[in-house]
Amino acid sequence: MWPELGKYGATVINAYIVTIVATGLLTWLSLRSARKSKETLEKLEARRNG
């Protein structure tokens, strides 16, 4: 199953790790700030209406 990467194995793996970590981090941070702003806004709206 695992492909034969030959002498360049580390190179390929490193490139994939960098990409996955960077895009994953970006997605995680985006999701986190989205969640935070949504909660804050809901709290504010509730206080305003209630």
């Binding site: 997605t27 985006s30 700030s33 989205a34 702003s37 949504k38 804050t40 806004l41 504010l44």
Partner: peptide, 18 residues
């Protein structure tokens, strides 16, 4: 990601206004 982040920015602006 663009939609998600734009939604966050819109919400943040609303939060500041409130």
């Amino acid at each position: 990601l663009l939609l998600l982040r734009t939604r966050t920015e819109i919400r943040n602006r609303r939060i500041r206004a409130l």
